[in-house]
Design a protein around this nucleic acid. Sequence first.
DNA 1: GCAAATTGTAATGATATATAACAATCGCCG
DNA 2: CGGCGATTGTTATATATCATTACAATTTGC
Lengths: 159, 159
Amino acid sequence: MKRASTSRGPRPGSIARVDGVNYADLGQHLGYALKRAQIASFEAFSRATAGEQITPPRFTALVILSGNPGISQTVLGEALGTARSGAMMLADWLEQRGLAERRHRDDDGRAWGLFLTAKGETLLRDLKRKVKRHDKLFAARLKPAEHSELLRLLAKLAG
Amino acid sequence: MKRASTSRGPRPGSIARVDGVNYADLGQHLGYALKRAQIASFEAFSRATAGEQITPPRFTALVILSGNPGISQTVLGEALGTARSGAMMLADWLEQRGLAERRHRDDDGRAWGLFLTAKGETLLRDLKRKVKRHDKLFAARLKPAEHSELLRLLAKLAG
DNA sequence: GCAAATTGTAATGATATATAACAATCGCCG
DNA sequence: CGGCGATTGTTATATATCATTACAATTTGC
């Protein structure tokens, strides 16, 4: 459906810094700082994946499928932090575009295993490259040491 | 409406690390790391504001209103990164609980100025204290120096 | 075998938020 | 002064995401 982008002002959700507005000590709040950074990162992601209809959850699903061939939809949902039904819709979406497929499982008649197709693998490789490049571009404001330090701190924070 | 919280497994959206799942190099992606950290932070925020129906955008709106008395709804929307209609609903919500009020503007017959009420100021003071305390608690995994370094890097990243 | 739990699925609902349309008002420019 | 475009607040509508609930098929444990 492609985002319209006909809007004039700052892109929705961008939390732009507006001139003349006093933001008080908002920057001291971890949550606010994280949100702002995440939005900036999301914009970089969008630029990287322009054209394709890839969202962060879809990208994550591709990565996890690639690293865990035959994973069940329930486990995929847990890994993504969504309800089973959410994993379902993701799987449907991937399947419809021929990026993944469901295969019957021998050991369990209820469950289906999810597998990336060759097309899915190819797309993922391409996406990873683009995302990494844009990540680097986007994080160019940081020195390399700062970049890795940030990743370390975020991981530590997320526990 | 208060979240149901009847769910059994990991809280939706938590992106829990699931045993036996291979996450590949997901942790190297800034966007993923940010999201995970933000979710953890959001949970801390929810704990801090349990009882009240305060969401991060509402909290941000309170802070901005406090620092910018008489701000217009359009500017508030820009500062929050939402469409005007979103700022509208936020203002409605705040007004309904007596936390803010709209006052006519002398200089512009179309625009309304937004002001925190005394009740709003009081609530904000209380919230700030709680949020700050939980932020610290939540960020306890980081050393104080790391905490401030993280804030600095995030701000630098968000530009 | 049979009850309970699990899996995938479908239908529904909630929520947040963007988009579009509209009236009132302002500001500019002739 | 008059009119036209832009802006503000507002409302209604659409959309996207995601949880919740219910259900059939199947597995597992007793």
